Computed example of a mutant assay.
Amino acid sequence: MKHRILTLLACTAIAAPAAAEKPLFEASEPIHLKIQAPLQPLIRNRSSDAPVTGTLTDPTGAALPVSLQLRGITRRTSEVCDFPPLRVDFTTAPPQSSPFSGQKRLKLVTHCKSSASFQQLVLLEYSAYRMFNLVSPKSFRVRLANIDYVGADAKPFTSRIGFFIEDLSDVAKRNGTKSSHAPERIPLADLSGPDAARFALFEYMIANYDWSMRAGPPGEECCHNGRLIGPLAPGQTVPIPYDFDFSGFVSAPYAGPPPELDITDIHQRLYRGYCIHNPDAVAAARQFRSLQPQILGVLGQTPGLEPNTQQRATKFLNGFFADIANDESTAARVLKKCVS
């Protein structure tokens, strides 16, 4: 018996570091960090994909070597954002003592513009990710950060809120599968019905139309503001949404309704899920209804979200919950506009 206990303890000791090897998304409190790099040249050259080198100083004080690269489409342009979204590559492995231990490459959602109103937009988009986390573990986790940006000359550039997005491979690993990289378009039959319906109903909840769960932009892999995990096989491919700034829920000033849809305002809701998945969408609506207190509760749990912003967002989400108040309402008010 003694030998068995010692064996169990040894196994536990071996397993413990593995469980905590990627701690960044295991906690929810905001982290404070500094990013130092030649930011002005990077921001000026919006058309360039050339990375710049710098350091990310984490909350432990460790200065981690990183490579920064511009990313995104709309928010990358200077006409829309003063400060573009970034991709952060760790050029050496962060130490185990760092919150970034185990991380290699991360997307960083930045503040776009410096005004207080844009800080609220960042927090709303962050809260949308947290809401989808409640609905499905097959989702991108996020971590809020208070970031001090510093130029290569060590002069302060700006300090703003942002958040990191979990890497797709880690999402897949958490869910016992692998990430998938598909050609420009995938067959409808490959989509997992329950996951596709959940994806579409969530986008309906936040009134977002800037996505596709089956196709990517011309010349790029699938999908537009969505990523895939699981086998590329009938009924087994799981689409995962991201990038919610064009939603009515976030209501960014640069967002507008797609011209091909019969809506005039981004706050209007129009269901864009597939009719073949309607039975799964009814089941998803039941799940959303059961989670209504927790979904609305995310707003109160988002640090820095102002009361007026919370109230507007709550009112907007309550319109969705009225639409899915029961199975009959879900069918009549949501699913009747499904995509054939």
Rank of each mutant, 00 (worst) to 15 (best):
P85I: 07
I263H: 12
T53G: 08
Q40K: 08
G230L: 11
A322S: 12
E79T: 15
E203H: 06
T110Q: 04
Y209M: 09
T60F: 04
L42W: 08
S159F: 01
D148W: 00
P303H: 06
A233L: 12
F164M: 01
A331S: 14
A20S: 14
V52A: 04
S247V: 00
A50G: 02
H3W: 06
C81N: 04
G54F: 13
F164N: 03
A207R: 09
D262P: 14
I295G: 00
G230H: 12
V66Q: 08
L124R: 15
Y149Q: 01
R174P: 05
N45Q: 04
R76H: 12
S97H: 00
Y204I: 06
L121M: 13
R198F: 08
A322W: 07
R105D: 07
A252T: 04
T92P: 01
Y126R: 04
A215G: 01
R87T: 12
L123V: 03
T77A: 07
T330A: 06
N45A: 11
P183S: 15
H277M: 11
R312T: 11
A154T: 05
R141F: 12
P258S: 04
Y129Q: 02
R141G: 11
S169M: 09
L123S: 05
F321C: 06
F100D: 02
M213I: 07
S48L: 10
G256I: 00
A200S: 15
V171I: 12
Q40Y: 05
L134K: 02
A93C: 06
D262L: 14
L64E: 10
E26A: 10
F83L: 13
R286P: 08
D148V: 02
T264A: 14
L123C: 09
S139P: 10
G226M: 05
A18M: 15
A20W: 15
V122A: 09
C112N: 10
L108P: 07
R130H: 07
D323A: 15
L232G: 09
C338I: 10
D89M: 09
A252W: 00
I324C: 02
F249M: 11
Q268S: 15
E166D: 07
A332S: 15
S48M: 07
I186T: 05
T7D: 03
G300R: 07
D265H: 15
L68T: 08
S28L: 13
D190N: 03
R272G: 03
L70V: 09
D280A: 15
Y271N: 03
G61F: 08
I14T: 11
A128M: 10
H3S: 11
R198A: 15
L33T: 13
P234S: 10
G216H: 06
A19N: 07
C81W: 10
K155G: 09
A16C: 12
G216S: 09
K104M: 02
S136Q: 08
C275D: 13
L201A: 05
Q294C: 01
V339F: 08
C222K: 04
Y149I: 02
S136D: 11
H224D: 11
T74K: 01
I240L: 09
